[in-house]
Nucleic acid binder design. Structure first.
Lengths: 340, 340
DNA sequence: TATTAACACGAAACCGTTTTCGTAATCCTA
DNA sequence: TAGGATTACGAAAACGGTTTCGTGTTAATA
């Protein structure tokens, strides 16, 4: 087992000072070519790599970014994460991930865990519980300390920071309009039983489209589901009692779950009921019939989030004053076989 | 914006030495009760938190673990990751994730990125390209340096380290046997076109089950697919030319893809063709009919991997000599509606 | 030949902790 | 009251780098 090699080791071995070694390895012209070559050769031979931690301490920055997301087993977050990782790695940053599991407490603990110098900034999407509770003190504290923070998808007005979302209201509107254009008149909306700002936005769009088309807006057409699948699902009762010919879902999981139940009730998709979901994941692709869905461009969102964060982190180094930015990614509809 | 507060700040403010502050905050009896209380109160008031980086440098350990996986948009890896994160966080460790994207070069770069003190150890699953290439020098180098390494799922005999897998051969055997017991006689096997040790193991099990049942083993019954979906899929031709009544797939994505194509050819599942897949993900649950599958217990695997790694990291601190361990998680079959 | 400039390198401070060791001041004991 | 023991704290080294500022030696200039 090889021992770790440090500047000190090299210095001792070559009988020069630590500073000389450091400079030589940076190819500083302050050091004679002879010495430089000798030191570099030695370092190469023993495969010297500077200790990141020491450099972090010295520079007061880690080149790590912290990502806190509600869930990882979820196609949308997974694609966002891939985007973040992509961009960050290209810029020489590492990504530390924590999962809040939709829990407020876990979110707070995770932020604490990363707070003390482990990272240069956060990228987050709020836990459902946090949004419900409306308690953002942990975020405020971070922002107060001047630690860069980027919020994506599940954002809040309560915090002043960089944000990145899709145009949820409009996407909800367009999705609903798509069904209306296909001839649907009784359109259900399926959303999370927990309050989420994105769901609320999408619901606005849904309402707007209905009103514009002169269709009746009726709260009994709204189905709220838990994210975890339960056997005696509320949706079973819902579909038995409510007659619909269209369905908008705020995510693909609910859409597919509902599609299956409608099929079991003998409905044909899209002939009897047209369905459109959010999140264009593997589930949407593989469903039978495949699901028309709103593309959220998760990867692009992740890349943009990382870009905003790293911009700010590096801006801070030069004492640059930057206003907070809000980027909006335009969602698009990918038409497949579940709509007409 | 609040300035960062350090031991030095406190020391200066309270007119004591840094060492006194440090000890007082650890409640050392070396410091008088009076002074201790004063310092603790001050620290509390200004919300002092020790700098993790400085502690890492001092302790020569980071409490970070590096995870390198081929893909994150993949249910199995995602659940393993959740298990790792779970266990690690509970032990006070952070998780840094890198994605190799099945590429050898990226794997090497990612390892390098984390190599120099950023983490206390690695948890990895090999990229397809790495397994194909058979070049493990980057892993050898890590092991040589005495950095703990745990390999999961996609492992190799070439490296001496802790490993964790499922009983792939047997799972392949049982899956195939399940179809045979359901009456299937012409069973296809679908696997990745890239070489993966897990696929090879599962294929062994498949062969063994066929032989045991006296069924013909025929390489034309093996379909190799790219992980990325392509429109003019090889499988189309395959299913047109080969008559089958059973299908074993090494993952759920291939299984669902094939199921859909068979359905389009007018086959009934499971009456005409029974299907069983690996990876019990959301896709399997939501498919129509739902997919019988081999549960890989990804989360448990992740937890176990983290346990092995942290054990070794902390064992190293006490100079404990530990033999390398290989844990095997028993896979199980979850029967749903795609088999008879 | 005296003065200065250029060159090549080292000492030391610094980043924020922890920890060992030393030492004044007080206390107890014989 | 001299002696050792105890208490309460500080100085300094260490972790592994970077960087500023000297400084001794040689080379160039007047």
């Amino acid at each position: 087992m090889k021992k770790k090699i440090t500047l000190k080791t090299i210095a001792k071995e070559l009988d020069v000072s630590v500073s000389t070694v450091s400079k030589a390895l940076k190819n500083s012209s302050e050091i004679s070519l002879d010495t430089r070559e000798k030191i570099q050769a030695f370092a190469q031979l023993y495969n010297y790599r500077p200790n990141n931690i020491a450099i972090s301490l010295k520079n007061r920055r880690t080149k790590n970014i912290g990502v806190i997301i509600p869930d990882i087993v979820h196609h949308f977050f997974t694609t966002v994460f891939r985007g973040i990782e992509n961009y960050a790695n290209a810029k020489g940053y590492n990504v530390i991930v924590c999962i809040s599991d939709e829990s407020f407490d876990k979110e707070v603990i995770n932020m604490e865990l990363l707070a003390n110098g482990s990272i240069d900034g956060y990228i987050m999407s709020l836990a459902a519980e946090t949004q419900k509770k409306g308690d953002y003190s942990h975020l405020i504290s971070v922002v107060d300390q001047g630690i860069p923070l980027v919020l994506f998808d599940r954002v809040t007005d309560q915090i002043q920071c960089d944000k990145i979302t899709i145009n949820d209201e409009e996407a909800g509107y367009l999705a609903t309009k798509k069904l209306i254009e296909g001839g649907s008149k009784h359109i259900a909306l399926v959303m999370n039983e927990n309050y989420l700002n994105v769901d609320a936005q999408r619901a606005h769009g849904y309402y707007r489209a209905l009103q514009e088309a002169g269709l009746k807006v009726d709260d009994s057409m709204i189905l709220r589901l838990p994210y975890q699948f339960e056997e005696e699902d509320k949706s079973v009762q819902f579909f038995k009692h409510i007659v619909i010919d269209g369905l908008v879902s705020v995510n693909e999981v609910f859409a597919i779950r509902c599609m299956k139940q409608l099929q079991q009730l003998g409905k044909k998709i899209p002939e009897d009921v047209a369905i459109i979901g959010f999140t264009n994941g593997i589930l949407s692709q593989m469903a039978n019939p495949s699901l028309t869905s709103v593309m959220q461009h998760g990867q692009r969102m992740g890349e943009k989030a990382a870009e905003l964060l790293i911009d700010r982190v590096e801006g801070q180094l030069e004492d640059k004053q930057m206003p907070f930015r809000s980027a909006v990614i335009q969602a698009g509809i990918l038409e497949r076989d579940s709509t007409r």
